[in-house]
Nucleic acid binder design. Structure first.
Lengths: 207, 207, 207, 207
DNA sequence: AATGAATGAGCCTTCATTCAT
DNA sequence: GATGAATGAAGGCTCATTCAT
């Protein structure tokens, strides 16, 4: 009986996703350039050649990582907004809380750090990210704030600025902790910080 | 007769600073790995060999860039705080306004983007940056907020969280615009945003 | 109801020949190294794995291409010589004309170009080609020339040299046009050239 | 006293020529694809990296080899024709003899074999070779034949065909012997063959 | 008999680093 | 102090070859 494990297994359907996940981890961790395809392959349990079966080259793999990883979260959030019943303040908090949770769970948010680092080197991808992720996210938050203003819940502030004021702190904190997790002695809990900033800000936002 | 002053004489002392400045620009622009020493040298008007006259290797140059570039700003801010007379709110705004101005003028703030991208690859440098820049900055803002609470100007909030809430939005906005300058259709003015967020937040912070 | 005949049944015996034909085309076109087995397979309407069912490796396929493709022509020519009645000059021209026609029709003659390029890399194959093709061809032409000399038709020239003088021009022209078809503005018709050179040469060869 | 030889020497002016010569040798010997830049470098006494100091990539090196190697011979021949006094037949033989000598001496003629093998893979280079070498050579021989016809020395034959008939045999024989030197038992002397074919052909060409 | 996913050795290419000048 | 030719290790990518299905 030959008990040596087969040198490889056919996994055609699962492979791309596995490779993308490995690549995501390493890209986020080490950056684009410092990530070797050899390591991506090893982490995915295959060899370098296999990566090239599914992706034309490193750059295409990078783009696939961004594209595939980033959209699902957003779609979910858009559903939440569409279906929401209740006050705009409650909705705003709901979105932020969900976001904070997501950030804590999945490596997906690492993409933001990646894009910050590599946008300059991949203009085309930057544009995709800007259009499909950033602008869509902003539109989401803007809509909620706009609604609050219309309904008289919020003061008539500049919506674009308020949108940034709402999202930037959470984003920065996540990106930051991703980078400095190992040497920041004052890690703060994401949800706690989100709530703290939300309340501070709402004091100025409420009509 | 060539009467132009012998440039190289003045240069002898200036060289390291010139190289650091070139390196800063390129590191911020393209990231650590994607920056070639050849290009750094070219931008500084010297050859690759000369870079090695002043810096042991690429990593040391990187560290020097971070070290040399980041401290002056901070020292200035510390002086401002020490010498300030007047309300804590005024001081807080003064710091933020100064910071926003600095960010707009000099490439220095690009360091933050750099460190976000490369902290994982240079733990030692990350620690240096954390200790010498981040924690000192936080201490600065924390002190002001603490003072406001002591004096009864501010409500007795969690100082650590309030510090982040004060600084993160500005930071994020700067980092972001540095990366996506070319494809973000909704660039916002840094100082305007700083003021907007400051006022929003102060509504919740004032006693 | 699918009434198309089951193609694979007829194919079983035809496969190797189909693969060899595809390989011939690509080897001649791109050279040995630049030809990918993937492309050979695709052109033959099979997959890479199938190629390995019939040929041990790329080198063996190459050898098979040379071996299988080159001999039939020669055998035919040998029959012609053996059965010829009439003058040596007529026979010589008959051979050349036949050859020129063959060259124009079939890709087979591309083998010569291939062997010129790869003889150095495949010494064993070069020897096979030399023995089974080149020397046999030379012997064929030499015999005719020899006969012409014996019969008093031709002057008593050096047979070896005369053989080369007879065959080289046609060969060169074919090889050349195969390589430079796309950029030679002065393509000449093979048969016309063969006739032209034959007549020129015969003037010197006739007794 | 350190007697270890220096790891390398500055040879900026000589390097490109040395590398081209090595590349020529190996390209002619093994073909384009089968030649490793490592081997080219080794043969030139440098390392792989050095090759890239002078040539952008393998393809550019290849083009340089062809360009640099091929022209000098031709220029010399053009001078010969321009300055010739005497019969066209003598000039024709002079050219052929010179050419045969050249072929025997220098590896340069290997270029022809190379171009035959790789023309299909480098269309741009093929065009260069066609324009700068082939057509110029043909023009050279054509001019001589034309002159002979004008002067009544030669019969009024088709010049294009006569040009090929004059040059093809020598070319073929050289290319052939370059490829099959090791296994051809009947190597013929180039000059002897040139003379033989020339006389045969002249019998048909003379008026 | 045929497939095609997976492998892994090999080569081209880049670039941080060295060192004779 | 400065140069830039040369190095060599590292990594992206290709493709002949294998083998479970």
């Amino acid at each position: 009986m030959d008990t040596t494990p087969p040198r490889w297994k056919r996994r055609k359907e699962a492979r791309p996703a596995e490779i993308i996940e490995s690549a995501l981890t390493l890209f986020v961790d080490k950056g684009y350039a410092a990530t070797r395809l050899d390591d991506v392959a090893k982490l995915a349990g295959v060899t370098k050649g296999t990566v090239y079966l599914y992706f034309d080259n490193k750059e295409e793999l990078f783009k696939a990582v961004v594209r595939e990883t980033v959209l699902p979260n957003l779609e979910f959030a858009e559903t939440v907004v569409a279906e929401h019943q209740g006050s705009s303040e409650a909705l705003l908090w709901h979105l932020l809380e969900r976001w904070a949770e997501r950030m804590t769970e999945s490596p997906t948010t690492g993409i933001a750090k990646l894009m910050i680092a590599e946008a300059g080197n991949f203009p085309e991808l930057a544009r995709f990210y800007m259009d499909e992720v950033v602008l869509r996210s902003r539109k989401l938050f803007s809509a909620v704030i706009e609604r609050g203003i219309q309904s008289g819940e919020f003061r008539p502030v500049d919506v674009a600025l308020a949108t940034r004021a709402t999202t930037a702190p959470l984003m920065m904190t996540k990106v930051w902790s991703q980078s400095f997790a190992l040497c920041d002695p004052e890690i703060i809990d994401l949800r706690t910080f989100a709530r703290f900033h939300f309340e501070l800000m709402m004091a100025g936002l409420r009509a």
